[in-house]
Simulated scan of single mutants.
Amino acid sequence: MELWFLGTSAGMPIRDRNVTSIALTQNDGTFWMFDCGEGSQHRLLQTPLKLTKLTKIWITHLHGDHVFGLPGLLSSRSSLGGTEALQLYGPPGLRELLETSLRISETHLNYPIHITEIEAEGAIFEDANVKVEAAKLDHRIESYGYRIEERERPGVLNAGWLAEQGLPPGPVYGQLKAGQDVTLADGRVIRSVDAVGESLPGRIVTILGDTRPCANAVKLGRGANVLVHEATFAHALADKAHEYGHSTALQAAQIAHEAGARRLLMTHFSSRYTREALAELETEARQVFADADAAIELTPYPIPL
């Protein structure tokens, strides 16, 4: 899994920063997007990610700097030969936004889109590998954060010990890895619990939309390997941040600290801050949370097990 920031600017793009969008690669070679500000598909062209491999889009809220890139991106995915269904999640109003823009522009897609408007907080998607939870944040309009939690993974197979037991590599290794005991030809039973180490915890990635500091930000970020939190302003402008429904870098760090996250990646920076000025936001955040960074666009951030 890797995070790619396709845009880290708040409100409008500037010369070296686009508006908000984040890509999260999946273990099967596909990827998800979180928000899709204007120009997001242009940023994708500067990454190794292929639009036809996009399977899900998660929208945090419907402010323009988070959604104005959607119609064009959906159209390009079709033009590039995408045929697999695309699932979109977001606040109420997402369906009207998309269906209206596609209808008026007479945009015809070669694949189905399935839109899920969030009706209640909690788990909104689950499969065999991952669970995604959503919760409301504190912004001027309805805004959500998402917690992506991997399932536990089987432990490491002790191949050396199995070889000592006279069991060569083969299909039985897969059975043991899957939790099944194996009976050998001589009647001995090799137990999975003896052959496989302890289960490995899954990774947790929390991506928050625009928000003031709030309890749900801490809840969604609890124990996260990576917490993505907006840091629109330096703390000297805390009053302005609160007025517009945003957070400061220091407040983002306080949320990460309270949540017990391992790493904080800050994004959604006001256009007043140049690339050089982002170092000041990092310094501010690190007063409270040492592993805090201002996200750099088009740079992969691996999420190790």
Rank of each mutant, 00 (worst) to 15 (best):
E284R: 09
A236Y: 09
V132C: 09
L70T: 03
G122T: 02
V228S: 00
G39H: 08
L51F: 04
V172F: 10
E121C: 06
E119T: 11
A10F: 15
T107D: 02
F125N: 04
G174M: 15
L49T: 06
W58K: 00
R222L: 14
A277E: 03
A120R: 13
E230R: 14
R95S: 09
L49P: 03
T267H: 12
L86G: 03
F269D: 08
P71I: 03
I118K: 03
E150R: 05
R188S: 07
T299A: 15
I22M: 10
V130Y: 07
H139Q: 06
N225Y: 11
F31V: 04
H61V: 04
L51D: 09
T211Q: 14
E258W: 02
G174I: 14
T60S: 11
K50E: 15
C214P: 04
A290E: 11
L6Y: 09
N27M: 13
R151P: 05
E280N: 15
P154I: 05
N27D: 15
G179R: 05
E198N: 14
R263Q: 07
P13M: 04
S40R: 05
E96Y: 08
Q46N: 12
H235F: 12
T211M: 11
R17M: 02
T47H: 03
T25W: 06
D16L: 01
D239K: 12
L70W: 02
V193W: 15
L250S: 13
D239F: 09
E258K: 10
E276W: 02
G90D: 08
E84P: 03
E38A: 12
V288H: 01
L167R: 14
F289N: 13
I118H: 02
A217M: 06
R263S: 01
Y244H: 14
A135C: 00
G72T: 06
W161L: 10
E38R: 13
L51V: 09
M12S: 12
G245S: 13
R222Q: 15
A224F: 05
A236Q: 14
